[in-house]
């Protein structure tokens, strides 16, 4: 296990990830400069542009800390550098973990378990996670130019928010299906023929209980700032619960 963790936390790996993220940051700077200059050229108020920069930075701080908590949650199995990379680009905690679990099973493991992970399995998992998330990028590379032209001719169609179509529900339904499959498997594990392993279900219930408290505070007490932390904090609390249960 230590050999695996040392390999996935090797210093060279940090340097590679830092290099990739530096490239992406430069890309952001280029977009920012071009947009700022164009804004001034077409007569936009410089104060508004500056205010947008400051407010976007402030608005992002809290959710960024939540992403950092996700890096901690993921780093125990996939190492710090890869978790850092994955949660800094393209994906999100729920995508990364779900795909890592699917990839781990496809690589012949019972799941994303530290006891079973090897560097070979890690590379396979990392490849599936990387290729599997490229859908959005490919859509941008091949279709964004054409799609944006269509949108510019019919800008009012943007208001998909006010008139939802099934697309919005489809993502929710897909996540419901994913959760049902995993929770179903944890319930199955509790039975003797499934191995009488109660831990996954207990951890899932603990996470659900903490998330339930967050949902109550967000929806009933209007503590909307908690929305940014609810997922990562629920997970970390449930993971701490697993440590305590294991000690009993």
């Amino acid at each position: 296990m230590n050999q695996y963790l040392n390999a996935v936390n090797a210093p060279v790996f940090y340097l590679i990830v830092a290099g990739v993220l530096t490239f992406i940051t430069i890309m952001c700077v280029l977009f920012l400069i071009k947009s700022y200059k164009t804004g001034l050229q077409i007569g936009m108020d410089e104060k508004v542009l500056k205010k947008t920069i400051v407010s976007s930075a402030m608005f992002t701080l809290l959710p960024s800390i939540s992403i950092l908590l996700g890096v901690i949650a993921l780093s125990g199995t996939l190492g710090v550098p890869f978790s850092w990379l994955r949660l800094s680009v393209i994906g999100s905690l729920q995508y990364e973990l779900n795909v890592a679990e699917i990839a781990a099973q496809s690589a012949g493991l019972s799941g994303l378990s530290l006891n079973e992970l090897t560097v070979e399995a890690f590379v396979t998992i990392a490849l599936v996670m990387t290729f599997g998330i490229l859908g959005g990028i490919m859509c941008c590379i091949f279709f964004l130019k054409g799609y944006s032209k269509k949108l510019q001719t019919k800008p009012k169609q943007e208001n998909s928010e006010s008139k939802p179509n099934f697309g919005a529900h489809a993502t929710t339904a897909m996540f419901v299906g994913l959760c049902a499959a995993f929770i179903g498997s944890y319930i199955g594990k509790c039975f003797p023929q499934g191995g009488s392993d109660y831990m996954p279900l207990l951890v899932a219930l603990a996470a659900a209980a903490v998330m339930g408290v967050f949902e109550y505070l967000i929806n009933k007490k209007n503590m909307n700032a908690l929305e940014n932390f609810s997922l990562a904090a629920s997970m970390l609390a449930a993971m701490a619960f697993a440590v305590i249960v294991n000690m009993l």
């Binding site: 125990g76 994303l112 959760c179 831990m199 996954p200 996470a207 659900a208 339930g212 629920s234």
Partner: peptide, 21 residues
């Protein structure tokens, strides 16, 4: 001692997400 925490990161995710969805 933290092994059970990281071995159960996926159940923790789907428990929390499950409740939400």
């Amino acid at each position: 001692a933290l092994l059970p925490a990281f071995n159960n990161v996926v159940p923790a995710l789907f428990g929390a997400l499950g409740l939400k969805y």
